[in-house]
Amino acid sequence: MGIEAILIINKSGGLIYHRSFDVSKTNPTGTTSKHSLNSNDLLILASTLHSVFVISSQITPKALQLSQSNLNYTIPYHPYVGVKNPEKSPRNSIPNKYGSFKGDDYFKEPFHSWNKSGLKQLSTDQFTMYIYQTMTGLKFVAISSTVLPSHNDSETNMMNNSGININNNSSKNINALQYNLGSQIADNLLRKVYCIYSDYVMKDPFYSLEMPIKSDLFDDKVKSLIDNLL
């Protein structure tokens, strides 16, 4: 999973942090955007995502509003996403530099998602966007270069059985698990970005709330997190 960009949107829909990670490594600084978006476009992107968040809860289907099915919002913990695994690289015998006061892997338990009715994931032909929302309304957005398999792969299969028993197709269910896995890993990663944010931005006495983040330490930590991501 290649992360192309990380964005942070504050609770009123303003873009407070944006960083592109050039996957092709043409620019070692990684500061120029691959998508050649100007700052105005980015602000539009941030505020659109923010407003869609509100709208998406309005269009909840009636069947879901009527049924009392309680969905599970707990996201399982995936170890060492974006952090070097000390067991796998024993050469690195020094206690891990990454991580926070909570330990080398930031957190080690499944966590609860606060994003119950808002936008979580957006898949297009070219990328997938994952959104992690915190309790305070801050949104962490990751743009990943992974895409869904296109419909051509399974189309021939589809024509034979005309879509009957689609839910019983076991291979598709495995596919669904992998798909949810991507979303879980993205949530784990973005929660780590949130941990870094709370350590290096919120504890910065010179940072004013809701304003753009200009912190080199935060930049470095996010960069190392993304670089360590497989």
């Binding site: 879901l64 979580k120 957006l122 990328f127």
Partner: peptide, 28 residues
């Protein structure tokens, strides 16, 4: 959402590949 994904598209102008939305997931 589709209009912003078109802007984020990496396609080169002469080899236009649309970057349309395939799916949108919310919490529910």
């Amino acid at each position: 959402l589709n209009s912003i994904t078109q802007k984020l598209s990496t396609s080169i102008s002469d080899n236009q590949i649309n970057n349309n939305i395939r799916s949108i997931s919310t919490g529910k």
